[in-house]
Each structure stands twice: as structure tokens, then as C-alpha cells.
Amino acid sequence: MTSTHAFSYPTQAVILAGGQGSRLRPYTDDRPKPMVEIPGTGVPIIGHQLAWLASEGVTDAVVSCGHLAEVLQDWLVSAELPLRVTTVVEKEPLGRGGGLKHAAASLPHPDQAWYATNGDIWTRFSLREMAAFHQERDATATLALARPRIPWGAVETDEFGNVLDFIEAPPSPYLINAGVYVFSAAFRDLLPERGDHERATFPRLARERRLAGFPLPHGAYWRAIDTAKDLTEAAKELRGA
């Protein structure tokens, strides 16, 4: 493998869009979670994701569908898309790892690296920077890491139990998996046929020091759209942007 090939940025991606989205009801009663619109934009979450991927040099995306797949497929047919999109449908739930493996089989360049994202993530940051980080570390898989805000106010006390301060929605002391990935070509073969890669594949790679974590750049926008409150917050943030 030549060094120029090693440093070419991925041009293909998988979007996992098969979840039930039960916590987003009633929005998900008649559509899969990625088809829920961000209020005020007129565009579903997956539309924002595809635009972001295209702006980062992705030319081909494979969308893994499950729950109410036809709603998503109909939208993809009618929308003006900024890149080529293929859909694959899970006939039965394969779990996130199995879903990834099933979708990755349809990527156009099986010998090249690829991005992946969960279908409920709304974010903006440089995927190319993340791919360079992945390649510099010679990682098999790299996950983006976010530092979410704790949804409750925090109370600061001293050692005597005196309350010193109230902090509204402080940033978490922990980094979390942001649901966006860069995978080397070899990663697909490590995925389970069925089940969750985060319980098996990721811990194994971590033990072997082949899993890298890319902290989202300071100020990067990131939100997981998991509940109706997340939709409201996203709309509010959009208005303030």
C-alpha cells in the first residue's frame, strides 16, 4: 500500500437508521427516527446528515433501514440528494453490529476506509480531521467523543457541607461515544453477524490498542436526537446560531 493511498480520505459512509425511536413518540409513530424533522428546518435528521457527509467529501452512502423503512426510502427517492445513496433493509433485527456489517457489504469500495454514523446524530465537525487522526494512529476503528452537558443543575459544596455554588447544566466530566466513526477496511470482518459491536468488537480492539478516540473540536455542534426535548433544544440552538 502506498503512502498516498494510506492518506486518501474516505468517500463512503454507512448510516444506521433502523431503530424504533420509541422515546421520540408520537413523532416516530409514522416514520423512522432519522425521518423526524428538526423544527424550523423542514428537513429530516437524515437530510442534515447526508448534506454534512457530502460536504466532507463522501460520494456514496449506504443507509441501513428497519422500522418503517419504506417511509425513509420514499423520501430518498423524492429528495434532491447531494451524493449517491443505497438502502439495505434488515429483514429481522441484527443489532447495531450486525446492522453495520450488513450495510457495509454494500459499500462500493470494500478495500477502503469508511465512515459510519448513527441515524439520530445531528452534528457538524471536520470528518477529514478525524480520518487523518485515525490514519496517524494506524487504528482499526476510531470513534468521535463528545462531552455532553449534564441535563440537571449541579451543586458545588465544600468539605463541611456548605453549598458554594449552583451550576446550570455543567459539562460532563466524562467523554461519551458520539455515534460517529471512521473504520478501516478490515473492521467489517471483525463485526458480529448479529449483536452489538460495542459489547464485543470495541472492547477487544481497545485491549489490543487498535481503537482510537477523537475528541470533538472545541465548539463543534453535536446533539443526539433521542427525545422530544432534544428536538426542542435543537430548534432553540438553531435559532440562536
Rank of each mutant, 00 (worst) to 15 (best):
T87M: 10
L216K: 09
G99A: 15
A69G: 06
G57H: 06
A132S: 12
E198Y: 07
G42A: 10
V180K: 03
G95N: 01
G57W: 05
K33H: 01
D189C: 00
L72F: 04
A169F: 12
H48I: 07
S3C: 01
G195N: 08
A69P: 04
F160I: 04
K236H: 12
R147K: 14
A13G: 09
F166S: 02
I167E: 12
I167R: 15
V63R: 00
V155D: 01
P171W: 12
K91F: 02
A178H: 06
Q49D: 05
E70T: 04
R188C: 11
E233P: 00
S78G: 12
E168A: 13
A178L: 11
V71P: 00
L175P: 02
R84M: 07
R199E: 12
G21L: 03
A241E: 13
A224E: 11
M130W: 12
E56V: 00
R223M: 12
N162R: 14
G119E: 03
W122M: 06
P148L: 11
P32M: 06
L191M: 06
A154D: 09
L94P: 01
D30I: 05
A141G: 00
P39D: 11
I46Q: 00
A6Y: 05
G66R: 07
M1T: 04
W222K: 02
A235T: 13
A144W: 02
A131C: 13
L107V: 05
T86E: 15
H197I: 08
H109K: 06
A234D: 05
T86N: 05
A79Q: 08
P93I: 08
Q12H: 08
P108M: 08
R84I: 02
L76R: 11
I38L: 15
W222G: 05
E198Q: 09
G119V: 02
A79S: 12
D189M: 01
S184R: 13
L127D: 09
A178Y: 05
E37T: 14
S126Q: 08
R209P: 00
I121G: 06
T11W: 00
M35F: 03
F7E: 09
F187A: 14
A228Q: 08
G195C: 07
W114C: 09
R124M: 09
T2P: 01
D29N: 13
G42N: 11
A154L: 09
A146F: 02
L83D: 13
D120R: 00
H218P: 03
A54S: 14
G240A: 15
I15Y: 05
L24C: 09
A154T: 06
D196I: 06
N162F: 06
E159V: 11
A200C: 03
G161N: 12
L16G: 07
W52V: 05
P151V: 04
D230Q: 01
A212G: 06
G97R: 04
S64T: 03
E233F: 10
R31V: 07
A144Q: 06
R147A: 10
H5D: 13
G42L: 11
T11P: 00
V62L: 04
P93K: 08
G219D: 10
P34H: 06
A51I: 08
E156D: 06
Y221H: 12
